[in-house]
Design a protein around this nucleic acid. Structure first.
Lengths: 132, 132, 132, 132
DNA sequence: GTGGTCTAGACCACG
DNA sequence: GTGGTCTAGACCACC
C-alpha cells in the first residue's frame, strides 16, 4: 500500500507521513485502528526502523495518531483530524492567494486558473492513477 | 527592506530569492533598475557574499534579473517575468488541488475554501496594508 | 575517467557538467546507477567538494541526474534525458547557422561543410576510437 | 551601425569583436579601408576606450585587421580572412557533429535537424531582422 | 556514510 | 568598483 519514491527529493520519513495522512483521511485506516508496528513496517518497506519511528512521531505531533508504549500506534479521532487538516489546507490556500495578488492576478483570472487546475488534475487521475 | 528569518528551515538564499521576486513583482524595483551589488547587500544583511551571489544566480536563471560582469545586476523585462510567474503559480495551484483531493475535499468545498481565502486576504489588506 | 583542463578558460564545474553529460549519454553510467559521491569525487580529482556539488546541482537541474540527501546521486531516466538533449543540440545548430549566414555562407556551401565535418568525424573515430 | 547589448552576458569587447568581424565579412568595411579610431568609436558608443582597444587587439590577433602606430587600424586582405573564418566555422561544425554522434544521433536525423535549423533562421530573419 | 548550506577569504575578468 | 569562480573548513539533516 505504502509506496516510496526514492527519486523524490523529500526525505523518506516525510513521504511516509504524507502517505499515512492521506490514508487516514481517505479512511484506509479507520478511527482507533492499530497501525502496523514500527518494526514490521520497517521490514515491509525495507528501510530503517528509525525512519518509521520518526514518521510516527511526526504524525503524533500533528494529532493524526497516538502511541501507547508497549501496545502500538493508533489512529486518532477522525473528526478532529479532518478539521485540523482543513485548516492547514486553508492556510496554504491563503498563502497562494496572497502570492497571486502580489503578482497582480485578478479575481477572475484566479478562478479561471483554479478551474483549469482542477480539470487537469481530473484528467491526470484518469491517465496515471496516483502520483509520480 | 529585505528581512531574513534565521529560524526558518529554508535556506537563506531561497528566502532571498522569494523576497526579491516579490519585490520585483510588486514594483519595488522597476524594470531595468540596478539591484544592490552582491557585496553591498552582503554587508547590509550581514551574510556572506556567496549567499547573495547564489540568490542572484537563481533569479537570473529564472529570468527575473540579469547580471553583467563588471557592471551589476538589473531587473529584467516585467512582461516576460509576469508570464513565467503565472506558470509557476499554476503549478502550485495544481499541487494544492492534488493535496485537497487526496484529503477527500469535494469540488464545492474547494471552491468555498478558495472564495473564503480570497475574501480574508482582501480584508487583511484593508487592515494592515502591506506585509512583513 | 574524468579529465579536467585547468588551462581551459571555462570554469571547472562547467567542464565537469559536460564530461558527466557526455558519459551519461554514452552509457558510461547506466540508468539509475549511482554516481561517485561528492566527497569521493572531490578527493579523486583533488578539487573542492563544493565544485563537485555545484556540477551535480546543475546536472540535476537539467534533469540528467537526481540526488537524494543521505543516499547519493543517481543517473535519471535516459529517455527523458535524450529528448531534452536533442533540443539543446538543435539550439546550438541554429546558433551556428546564424553565424554562418552572417559570414555570407550560402546554403550549398553550408551543406558541403557539414557533410565534410560528418565524414571527417567518421574517419577520426575509425582511427582513434574514443576521444579524450 | 554597431549595436551593443548590455543585457548580453558576454563582455562588451567580445560583442564588439563579433560585430566588426561580421561587418568585415559582409563587406561593410572594404579591404584596406580604415576603421574608426579608438577614441572616436569610444565616444560614439559611449564606452571606455580601453574596451575598443581590446577589441581591436583581438581582431588583429585573429588577422582581420592590422594597426599602424600613429595612423590607425585597417581591414586586412579579405581573401585570407574568409578562408580562416571558414576554417573556424568548420571546426565548430565538427565539434557539434561530434557531440551529436555521442548522443546517438544518426546521419539522417542530423541532416533533418540542420535543414530545420536553416529554415527557422530564414523565417526569423524575415520577422525580426538582426539578433536580439 | 550521504547531499546541502553557509562562511571566510582569495583570485580572476571586466569596465 | 562589478559579478563569477574556487578553496578550505564547518555544520546540518538524513539514513
Amino acid at each position: 500500500m505504502l509506496i516510496l519514491d526514492y527519486r523524490d527529493r523529500r526525505p523518506i520519513y516525510e513521504q511516509l507521513v504524507d502517505r499515512l495522512k492521506e490514508g487516514i483521511l481517505r479512511g484506509v485506516w479507520k478511527e482507533e485502528e492499530q497501525l502496523p508496528s514500527v518494526r514490521s513496517l520497517a521490514i515491509d518497506l525495507s528501510i530503517n526502523p528509525n525512519t518509521i519511528q520518526r514518521a510516527y512521531a511526526e504524525l503524533e505531533r500533528q494529532g493524526f495518531i497516538y502511541s501507547v508504549r508497549g501496545r502500538g500506534s493508533f489512529v486518532a479521532g477522525l473528526g478532529e483530524i479532518r478539521q485540523s487538516h482543513r485548516q492547514e489546507l486553508f492556510k496554504k490556500a491563503k498563502d497562494l492567494v496572497e502570492e497571486a495578488k502580489a503578482a497582480g492576478v485578478t479575481r477572475e483570472q484566479w478562478e479561471a486558473l483554479l478551474a483549469q487546475a482542477w480539470a487537469e488534475e481530473e484528467m491526470g487521475e484518469q491517465k496515471g492513477g496516483g502520483r509520480a
